[in-house]
Simulated scan of single mutants.
Amino acid sequence: MRDSSKTQVILLVADPQIQGYQDEKSFPIGSFARWDIDRYLSQTFGLAYSYCKPDVVIFLGDLMDEGSKATTLEYKYYYYRVQSIFSAAKYTKKIYVPGDNDVGGEYRDMRTEKKVDRFVKHFEELLGIVKFGFVDYIKLDLRTHDSYSEDRQQFAERHRFQVTSPVKILVGHETVSPKLKMHVYPILKLLKPQLIFSAHWHKSNLFECSDCMMNDDDHWSVHRRDISNVEGYLNINLTGKYSLTEIMVPTCSYRMGEENMGYGVAIIDSDLNMKYTVLWLPQRYLLLYMYLFVGGVVLLFNILVVICFEMGKRKRR
């Protein structure tokens, strides 16, 4: 039996981007596409949930493909689909952070107060400190196309004394480590997270830096490692006083066109040791193509049987 006061299991869901209603093809193709991706996500998430039995499930943004531009009715349908797809975690602690597809903010898809309010109403606040067990989860919503420095730093200054747990984890949709140090370092210095979970690129990466929190210069030596082929668990120690570790979680949706899809799993103990892996998912498009091929063969066979039967009838006449 796991002692949740000493060990915490986190299941990470990134970029499910459940399909919308405006950009999909009309009935019946669009309806089938939504049904198939919802079914795929529901079944794979259920298996991942049953396997790791998480204490916390973190949704790292882009829950919806067209959430930013959805009508009120479409957004309502979106919300019920999200709850249905991830219903295995109904009674588990959940943390939601928004992505650009949920509330806008990328390129010409502008973020507005109305979009943000709609997300908050259905899910939760964009910024906040979520305390759970021996972990503080810090939601900061750091974005590339944004002037973070003022409001995010003000938030950090107001809440830094609330961040008191042994483990401090920053969670957000966009990656932090590759950004310009001058934009994010003042905020990280106040909150002192040992770990960051992010998404957005749809890929599986590990960013490490042993001295990023040591000084105020304009450069930090972040090393990126592709962990798309990780098997088993990576062991990561979070005790370094000046180190910073960021894990980018891959998409869990086959609709993103990525070869490697999965759910992230992190096991963290109160001594700042972590094990991380990805529960890789099966390729869906390959199976769909196989279904189409087999269906085509069966259909052709039946057509040939009917033709042969009709020809036989004519000969007997």
Rank of each mutant, 00 (worst) to 15 (best):
I303R: 11
E259R: 15
S31I: 12
D217V: 12
K25M: 10
F155S: 07
S149I: 12
A88V: 09
D100K: 08
F134S: 05
Y276S: 01
V171L: 01
I236P: 09
S147E: 09
L292V: 12
F309C: 06
A33Q: 12
D102K: 01
K315R: 15
K189P: 00
I169S: 03
I196G: 05
F155N: 03
G172K: 02
E157F: 00
N215S: 13
L11G: 03
I95S: 06
L299V: 13
A156L: 01
L190I: 06
R2Y: 04
S147A: 09
V82Q: 10
G262E: 06
L287W: 08
Y51P: 00
D15T: 06
L287S: 04
R158W: 00
W35A: 15
G172A: 01
D271S: 09
E124P: 10
G30T: 10
M274P: 00
L190D: 13
V56Q: 05
W35I: 07
L11R: 05
D36L: 15
P193M: 04
C252H: 01
S5G: 05
P250M: 07
Q162A: 11
F32S: 12
S87Q: 10
V230L: 15
K93E: 07
G257H: 08
P98H: 01
K93R: 06
K114Y: 05
S228T: 15
L60H: 03
E208D: 04
Y233V: 03
H159T: 12
P186Q: 04
V120R: 11
E157T: 11
R316V: 14
L279G: 00
F86L: 03
T7H: 04
F155D: 03
L281E: 00
W220K: 08
M256I: 05
M256P: 00
F86I: 06
I227Q: 08
V13N: 03
Q153L: 15
Y49G: 05
N205P: 02
S177C: 09
